[in-house]
């Protein structure tokens, strides 16, 4: 889309996202970050979630992000250099093109975001086992983190427009903000980076293994609310996962307040939410 904006387009004055957290002198930031969407073996649902920021998407593009690559939405055929690459889908290792593309993405992008369950954890492609015409050899699909180093995870199937928006705004602050904004962005993104470090496997079982088995579950119900296939119910206050429904998207564990809970960020929820929504007004 960058390519198509007439050269004479006046740059709109950029409004500084209001920082309530530590309101410091805001230095106006004029430069946008560059970002793109890389589509591997996914379903485009992640991309639709990006678009589902509706009018907010237009504001993001006006002020903060130049969307430089996106086969679905734009006319760009080859992966360019960019600040943030949002990768949707897992990698079919029997498909040369996909493997090249993910490696190229790592070389070209400063920050690689695994967008959605397929990129983070394989999601439904964890069930793939090949054997289907016309490419029966397409059998092995890996989350991108098994092939390249990934910086940030956004789990879920589909991921939510609001998570995508938050990460975009935070990436912008991290790369272009003043020192306070950078510090906030880093704090916000840290757990999502830790999720990326934690590994490439997810399942409803994580609630048992990492929460209940660890003596951490307190029965809030967040996991059940988060599950996109209604695989989780609560029986006497604790989660029960129907493993024959679970698609391995990783939303439940990431949503659980006992997977991660960063007081330094969440205690400031009001200021941060105001800042993010303010930035997109």
């Amino acid at each position: 889309m960058k390519q198509q904006i007439p050269a004479a387009t006046p740059q709109k004055p950029v409004e500084q996202p209001k920082e309530e957290v530590k309101s410091k002198e805001a230095k106006p930031v004029a430069e946008k970050i560059t970002a793109g969407h890389i589509h591997l073996s996914g379903c485009t649902g992640c991309e639709v979630a990006i678009a589902d920021n509706y009018a907010g998407l237009l504001t993001l593009l006006d002020r903060y992000v130049d969307w430089v690559y996106d086969l679905t939405l734009a006319d760009v055929r080859h992966v360019p250099k960019m600040d943030v690459a949002m990768v949707e889908g897992s990698v079919c290792i029997q498909d040369k093109l996909s493997v090249e593309e993910i490696k190229e993405t790592r070389e070209k992008a400063k920050i690689v975001v695994a967008l959605g369950g397929c990129a983070c954890y394989g999601n439904i492609t964890r069930f793939a086992r090949g054997g289907q015409t016309n490419q029966p050899q397409h059998e092995s699909f890996l989350p991108i983190g098994d092939i390249i180093k990934v910086d940030v995870y956004i789990p879920g199937c589909a991921p939510t427009p609001q998570m995508i928006r938050n990460v975009c705004v935070m990436a912008y602050l991290l790369l272009k903000g003043n020192p306070d904004q950078q510090a906030l962005a880093k704090k916000y993104l840290t757990p999502l980076m830790q999720l990326a470090e934690r590994g490439t496997e997810a399942c409803g079982c994580d609630l048992m293994i990492e929460v209940v088995n660890q003596g951490l579950c307190m029965g809030c119900g967040s996991c059940a609310a988060a599950c996109p296939v209604r695989a989780i119910t609560h029986e006497y206050g604790k989660p029960n996962v129907n493993r024959e429904m679970c698609i391995k998207c990783g939303a439940c564990y990431a949503q659980c307040p006992r997977s991660f809970f960063n007081f330094d960020v969440i205690n400031e929820y009001q200021g941060i939410l105001d800042a993010i929504t303010g930035a997109l007004q």
Binding site: I154, G250, A251, Q255, P257, I266, I272, L273
Partner: peptide, 21 residues
């Protein structure tokens, strides 16, 4: 703890599309 869950859900709405606002 449920209030914590709500606020985490508003800031990190991994599986809570269109809930935060």
């Amino acid at each position: 703890c449920q209030m914590q869950a709500i606020r985490k859900g508003q800031l990190y709405p991994v599986g809570l599309r269109d809930v935060p606002d």
